[in-house]
Simulated assay, not measured.
Amino acid sequence: MKAEAWIFGACTVFFLLVTPAYWLVTDASEHGGDWTGTSALTMTMLLALMMTVYLGFHAKRMDPRPEDRKDAEIADGAGELGFFPPYSWWPLWTAASLGVCVFGVASGAWWLFIIGAVLGAMALVGWIFEYYRGVHAH
């Protein structure tokens, strides 16, 4: 995790330097700069700092991974990396039902929103429980 901590640390330093520069560059009027962009860059810098601290803290507490060691070989990283799900149609139906809900709200047809919500609930349940039934059951 040290590599990830260093990447987020570099991003933190970048945003720390860019934020005051942005505020000074946008100071074209007498109002004192663009507060929206400056606050967004400040929040982004704080988010990158939070990730740097979190990853750095956990990197010290856990055993080094093969990619964190300088003496590691490629074979040290061999083995199972995790569970990667196969294809699934459920995200498509969940997104389509969300589209029906949004269209129902935008057009003022609340009955269409209700239909989309019911279909969305069914699609979400299918997506959650797809590994308990059928071909990909565990």
Rank of each mutant, 00 (worst) to 15 (best):
M1N: 05
K2W: 07
K2G: 08
I7Y: 12
G9F: 03
T12A: 08
T12R: 00
T12N: 02
F15C: 09
T19Q: 15
L24H: 15
T26D: 05
D27W: 11
E30P: 01
G32L: 09
T36L: 12
T42Q: 09
M43H: 02
T44Y: 09
L46C: 11
L47C: 08
L47H: 03
L47G: 05
M50W: 12
F57N: 07
R61H: 06
M62F: 13
M62L: 09
M62Y: 14
D63G: 13
R65L: 15
R65K: 13
R69D: 01
K70M: 15
E73P: 04
A75M: 12
D76C: 11
D76Y: 10
A78R: 13
F83V: 05
S88M: 04
W90P: 04
L92G: 07
W93T: 04
W93I: 10
L98Y: 03
V100Q: 00
V100C: 03
F103W: 03
A106W: 05
S107V: 07
W111R: 08
W111C: 05
L112P: 00
F113M: 10
I115V: 11
I115H: 06
A117D: 01
L119E: 02
A121V: 07
A123H: 01
L124G: 02
V125H: 07
G126F: 10
W127T: 02
I128F: 11
E130Q: 15
E130T: 07
E130C: 12
Y131E: 06
Y132A: 10
H138N: 09
